[in-house]
Amino acid sequence: MNRFSSALKKFKRSRTSVFLMFAAVPIVGYLLFYFYPILRTLMLSFTDKTMTRPDVNVVWLDNYIRIFRNETLLGKALVNSIIYAFGSGVITLVIAFFMALLLNSKVKGVGVFRIILFLPFVIPTFASAAIFKGLFDPNSGLINVFLYDNFGIQGPGWFKSEDTALLTMILMSIWGFGIQMLIFLSALQNVPASLYEAAEIDGASKTRKFLSITMPMISPMLFLNVVLVTINGLKSFNTGYLIGGVEGNPNNSTLLFPVLIYRIAFNTEYGGRRLGYASALAYIFFLVIMVFTAVQFIMSKFYVNKDVE
């Protein structure tokens, strides 16, 4: 008894106990909101659980087999998400980088341009979706009216046509390039001026300076931006949901993977909130994201300069 109480006293004064005292709530939160759901989703993915029927059967790998055999939407949603992430990501990065280079020069009034170019990022997605639906309306939107009045061209259906809806979604997402632009800009501004001065003494040309100093110096930031846009693009729910709804209108062309999971798990009209089936989809989605993240890290070995930081 004595030994126990002295051990308890010792524990109370130890770092572990103080650590526990401070971190107790997030540790409980971790178990409740991360640890349990990860296991529960895995368990659910082996069952046919729905929210509308009380009985649950263990079906083992049936969900996964059914997804790969019969789920016509799996490929569609996966391809949509990948095209969206890739298209939106690449164009956003190119524009953001180019704009950052322009903003990095010492011209007067550059602060005003920085605010203007950043502004669309501040606009919440629900608002930019509403703005772009108006702008790209096939009959009454500015774009098509402009095309018709000036060139006599009957513009495409944009969001309303199966062939162009995803592309228009990509165009819309590019509007918010401001954050990537500012990340690039801060990277450019952190390149020490002494490096450029030294190169100038050696008579280096502008292109030479750009390729041999600027690019290697900002390569870690480039990597950060590439990872951010790709993963955020794959995870993107808001844009798809706001443009095409849970149906992915028109004809599943705007259906992104997270929206597919959402509609199967939570929407009664699509088979009665099939939690089990949706859980299997969620795990497949998780694997896809893992693969993409791994590919990013492998690719980064080829263009990130290790001597920086």
Binding site: R40, L44, F266, Y283, F286
Partner: peptide, 14 residues
């Protein structure tokens, strides 16, 4: 840290 929310939302909803 990089876990997609989809993996966590279904049990939470339940």
């Amino acid at each position: 840290l990089f876990l997609p929310g989809e993996l966590l939302n279904i049990p939470f909803y339940e």
